[in-house]
């Protein structure tokens, strides 16, 4: 990967979808570049299109117009199956409600992305433990999510996002379900990951969380309202 090539490049990104008989314009021409190692907060009121942008950046959804390049590769019109494979290899998701599988232990949850990795990963168990160690959850590997606190669950989720060594991590309101002290701890963990070189994009409407990012992109009505660097 050439140094100057952005991890994410949107050009004229548009997304519309039908809702209750009307067409909703969620994104109306977004141009943005995000480079490797950046820590970006996408902010804006609800309905501004930030969730849509995040879903498209995470290849959970596709654009209706414009162009999306991920690590220099045009992924605007690839198949559902290829999107799944790229999600698996290049993107780590962190959700507001953690989204751990309740019947699986912490380490099994971390193993999950490797289950879908092709080709199969040989040292999957060690890698899962290593990821848990990097978030300080090694001692809780055998616990079920219900036996863990919210902050601990989010740490396991972060380990899960890291385990396939993705190009970027997408975090959707990662502290939204946590008390402020635990939320700060999670933010510190995310910041330290960014310091180690991981590209981090987080979606939030919490100004305090946004303050931690190095760059803030504000969306309004599906367009970029402001793009500011700290």
């Amino acid at each position: 990967m050439a140094k100057d090539l952005p991890v994410i490049r949107f050009r004229g990104a548009c997304k519309s979808y039908p809702m209750a008989g009307e067409t909703v314009q969620a994104l109306r021409g977004v141009d943005v570049d995000i480079h490797a190692g950046e820590f970006v907060a996408i902010m804006g009121p609800s309905g501004s299109g930030k969730s849509t942008l995040m879903h498209i950046a995470g290849l959970l959804d596709s654009l209706s117009g414009g162009r999306y390049e991920l690590e220099g590769e045009d992924v605007s019109a690839i198949s559902r199956r290829n999107r799944a494979d790229i999600r698996n290899r290049k993107i780590g998701f962190i959700f507001q409600s953690f989204n751990l599988l309740s019947r699986c232990s912490a380490v099994e949850n971390v193993e999950l992305p490797m289950l879908y990795h092709r080709p199969a990963i040989a040292d999957w168990r060690e890698r899962a433990m290593q990821a848990l160690r990097s978030v300080g959850m090694e001692s809780r590997a055998a616990h079920l999510p219900t036996q863990l606190s919210g902050g601990q669950q989010q740490r396991v989720a972060i380990a899960r996002a890291l385990v396939n060594r993705p190009a970027l991590i997408l975090a959707d309101e990662p502290t939204g379900n946590l008390d402020s002290r635990t939320g700060r701890e999670i933010m510190e963990l995310l910041e330290s990951l960014n310091t180690e070189g991981i590209t981090l994009i987080l979606v939030t409407h919490d100004p305090e969380v946004g303050q931690a990012a190095h760059r803030r992109i504000r969306l309004r009505d599906g367009m970029i309202e402001a793009d500011e660097v700290n």
Binding site: R81, D85, N88, R89, F93, N99, L112, Y116
Partner: peptide
């Protein structure tokens, strides 16, 4: 359904 969504987000193909 939610479990299926999580698995898909983590890279499960339709076939998986």
């Amino acid at each position: 359904t939610r479990e299926i969504g999580i698995r898909m987000a983590l890279g499960a193909r339709e076939g998986d």
